[in-house]
Design a protein around this nucleic acid. Structure first.
Lengths: 355, 355
DNA sequence: TTGAAAGCGCTAACAA
DNA sequence: TTGTTAGCGCTTTCAA
């Protein structure tokens, strides 16, 4: 920078002004400095800038595991939203255990201005941890609820309810739900609890009796567990003509297990998932699902985090809470006839498996 | 840090020594400083450290798109490998176009000590760009070949060849390959070119005649294109009793299109993919594939990058080239009977769909 | 509109 | 074994 200033015959400050697009620089000075920058191939040292300004231009995203398609697609959307704002994203995988997540929350991710955190293990009982957080934080999902932080999530209850209403509208009455979590204590806000609540609400409204044998407890939400749970459901002899899988990964396992058992989808059993991951478009049959609005979640969360970062220490805004719009995506697994082949777009506006 | 030094009654330097686990600090001093650190909740400013030391403790990973399962799983493995070494990972998505990739290569990712770069658009003709790179760089894949950089990749030719040999061993002779890329010019080192080469080699060795109609050109490698290509192959009337899909995403589309057309897998058509993404375990039928050794690729690439970073400007080592071990994973789509259900492990040693 | 000077928090080099 | 000094490259404050 010093070299640039010398070559252009100005001071450091002026170079800095040019680099940062500050006003109050005469066009000719700006041009002269720019020429010097190009000639010398000058690139600002971002560590130094970070030291001086207290900003790194990097945000953190902590997810359980990137190899779970939902989180990969979420990360994709978050990175895109951040890059639109000139920010980089450090991704941390904290899903190994509670200790790992606690450590992430206590420290943030290194070298970042703020954190988007999607916890897997932390729950309402860990709410107290949030009060100690001193950096800008936006939570994704509802596992830790009621803290002082901004929160972006999806319509878990409403989405699941709409999914079940969709199944009911097909005339199904024996609707199983796969992916309930064990009741550790009441009042939990885990996605499984919320989605099960939506499932029950839909049944209640329709006057369809609940049957505990149709609520299959299985965690975590991986295809392999969807297979196993469905095999057990079939083996139990309970009759069912539809399945709500609480996410698409489970649903893929459900489809697999039903095919093994010779149950036809959707004729014998209709299946709907949740998340609208891309893979669901290409299963056989293609997978109906709830699109939770992942792009909106990513965009909103990044926007909120940026605002918090820019606020700095001032507590200017109240805590905010945003739920993205959702919609039901009806595909073959609930009887819709869809042609999966469409035009390929390198970065389509809707990237999450919508048809 | 100054506060810590005062509270502990020592100098800044001593605090620094404690924080960095330097030797030559007496145990009692260390304990006293540590107590002060804990009491004050001191956290080192990493920007300042980065400024002073010239290291950020962050590496970059540039992939085309995180939402493609192969890259999500690769990123998962890279992050895990980096975290084992106390490093963070900034992920950039550069797949939008050539210009984006060129910019990434020219600048690196901001705030990083080095870059792992998996290009999609840059090719052998862009080799010259590599000579201008001034930061530690390890390339993934073979698109830009023969540059001065370390390189980690997979056995594309051998893997594809082994896959076709597997199909031949089942008695298949009319083997289609889906995912060849258009011939822009000869001597290309794109994965598609290499895998097609392996395909041809296997046929030649077995004395099975090549048939250009069985080489289906389609790009990019997305499920939707696998569907479309397979529909066209079927519509063309060419007979085939097996398909090598050049990656698993294509293969998932191939399975889908074959099911639509009423072709039974593997009875009528055996199918094998490439990459061993997790989804392939749960398709119906489950997908045979080539496991390219993703964990090994990630671990090796991170290790090489760290060495280059530690070397600094000194050109101590010659350029290195590493190909990970691969293996064929036989599942139902080539006639193996596999039970997909196994124990669930939060971070299994083999994370990539191996059975 | 531009310049000069100070200092962000840390670590390397050297001194004690 | 510990302390002192200087300076990494930038931006901010204040003065010109």
């Amino acid at each position: 920078m010093h070299d640039v200033a010398q070559l252009a015959g100005v001071s450091n400050k002026t170079v800095s002004n040019v680099v940062n697009d500050h006003p109050h620089v005469s066009p000719e000075t700006r041009a002269r400095v720019q020429r010097a920058i190009d000639e010398l191939g000058y690139r600002p040292n971002l560590s130094a800038r970070g030291l001086r300004s207290g900003r790194t231009g990097v945000i953190g995203l902590a997810v359980p595991q990137l190899r779970q398609p939902y989180f990969a697609e979420l990360a994709d959307a978050v990175i895109a939203a951040a890059e639109r704002r000139g920010l980089s994203v450090i991704i941390g995988q904290a899903g190994a255990d509670r200790a790992h997540e606690t450590a992430v929350l206590a420290n943030g991710l290194r070298q970042t201005d703020g954190l988007l955190f999607s916890p897997e293990h932390l729950g309402t009982e860990d709410r107290g941890l949030l009060d100690d957080v001193t950096y800008p934080l936006v939570l994704l999902g509802e596992r830790i609820f009621g803290g002082p932080n901004d929160h972006v999530t999806m319509h878990n209850v409403e989405g699941a309810r709409a999914a079940v209403e969709h199944l009911l509208s097909l005339g199904r009455r024996r609707i199983a739900v796969v992916g309930a979590h064990p009741d550790r204590r009441t009042g939990q806000m885990r996605p499984s609890d919320l989605r099960v609540r939506g499932y029950r609400e839909a049944l209640t409204v329709a006057g369809v009796p609940e049957d505990p044998r149709l609520e299959v407890v299985v965690a975590p939400w991986l295809p392999v567990n969807g297979v196993e749970a469905t095999r057990e459901l079939i083996a139990s002899g309970v009759e069912f003509d539809a399945v709500l899988a609480l996410n698409d990964s489970l649903a893929i396992g459900v489809l697999r297990a039903l095919a093994e058992a010779g149950r036809r989808v959707p004729d014998d059993v209709a299946v709907i998932g949740f998340d609208a991951i891309a893979d669901g478009r290409f299963t056989t049959p293609s997978l109906s699902t709830v699109d939770p609005g992942r792009e909106e979640i990513a965009e909103t969360a990044v926007a909120m985090l940026v605002e918090r970062i820019e606020d700095g220490d001032r507590a200017l805004r109240p805590r905010r809470f945003h739920k993205a719009a959702f919609r039901i995506v009806a595909r073959e697994s609930t009887g819709a006839s869809t042609d999966v082949v469409g035009p390929w777009l390198p970065h389509p506006p809707a990237t999450d498996g919508r048809d």
